[in-house]
Computed example of a mutant assay.
Amino acid sequence: MIVVSCLLDREAFPWQAYWYRARVQEHLRATVDDRFRLWFIDNALHGDDDPQEFPDRTVAYLGALETALRQLVAWVERDEDPTPTSVYRVSDGQIVLPASVEARGGVQPVATLTINGRNHAIVRTGESFDIHLDVEAPAGGIVVEVRPDFTGSGRLGDPIALEPAPSLAIDQQLVLDEPGTYLLSARVAAQTEADPISPHARVQNIARARLTVTD
Rank of each mutant, 00 (worst) to 15 (best):
W39Y: 03
R35Y: 02
Q16R: 10
V32W: 03
Q25C: 08
A12S: 12
G47P: 06
A12T: 13
I41E: 07
A12K: 12
Q25F: 05
E11D: 14
T31H: 11
Q16P: 04
R23S: 08
L45V: 07
R10S: 10
D33T: 03
F36S: 02
W39Q: 00
L38W: 02
D42W: 01
E26C: 06
A17R: 05
N43K: 14
N43E: 14
H46I: 11
D48Y: 14
I41G: 11
R10F: 12
A12I: 15
R37C: 00
P14S: 08
P14G: 04
F36K: 05
A30E: 03
V24K: 09
Y20W: 10
Y18I: 10
W39V: 00
W39N: 00
Y18E: 13
V24Q: 12
A44L: 12
Q16F: 05
I41Q: 08
D49L: 15
L28V: 01
A44R: 06
Y18Q: 09
D34C: 04
V24R: 07
F40S: 03
L28H: 05
F36W: 03
E11T: 07
G47L: 11
R23E: 06
A17P: 03
D34Q: 08
A22D: 06
L38V: 01
R35L: 10
A17C: 06
R21S: 06
F40G: 08
L45M: 13
H27E: 13
V32A: 00
D42T: 01
A30D: 10
A22F: 09
